[in-house]
Amino acid sequence: SPTVSMAELDHLAHVVSKSHLETCQYLREELQQMNCQNFLQDEVESYQKKPREVMWQLCALKITEAIQYVVEFAKRINGFMDLCQNDQIVLLKAGSLEVVFIRMCRVFDSHNNTIYFDRKFAGPDVFKALGCDDLITSVFDFAKNMSSLHLTEEELALFSAFVLLSADRSWLQDKLQVEKLQQKTQLALQHVLQKNQREDGVLNKLRCKVSALRSLCSQHTEKLSAFRAIYPDIVRTHFPPLYKELFG
């Protein structure tokens, strides 16, 4: 593994954390100040009554918006833009949705199992019309587990960068370079966890989250394929082009 000084790790943590905050779509304080409410029962019902394809389209749009912020985050991670374009695209194709799932825990309210969506807090029942209850349950469970770790923004930022810089993605041209960046990010994450006096188990718990994230993404791909098989024209004509590029 690379030799890195403490000062270098501090600097890396600072830069990644700043990039994360600059590109995180919603600041926690903003959401608190907005005093967002939960959806009322009749609002929940109106989401549930939406045609399946309309709800899918809405969620594809929200995911795409969130991913655009993740792309900006990636661009500001040290060394990411020095990778060849093939590898930048491979990493974003495989990792951008995973980072969206990580970021979800910032807008998750564990008291009532709701998540910020479409300007209010929504429980799993809001997403019923999608017709993929198992995926929604998995996403909420993940957000719940992730938020129970009570990571700081700096820790979340470094974990997001670590996931984005996964060196084991297929089709990377310069695996070694990505591996170096990922190792440095992991060292910075370890350094910050130690500095924050987190117990040793946290890093292991985060490692387990990596496989949970992959499983969520493959579930999403399966659900999308099943949806596309029934509504190919809706996907072709109404889904955001970036979403189709990433998951098509």
Partner: peptide
């Protein structure tokens, strides 16, 4: 490149 046109564009836009 054609396959990932939008991603290419997003990556090439200067960070704002």
């Amino acid at each position: 490149k054609e396959k990932h046109k939008i991603l290419h564009q997003l990556l090439q836009n200067s960070t704002s």
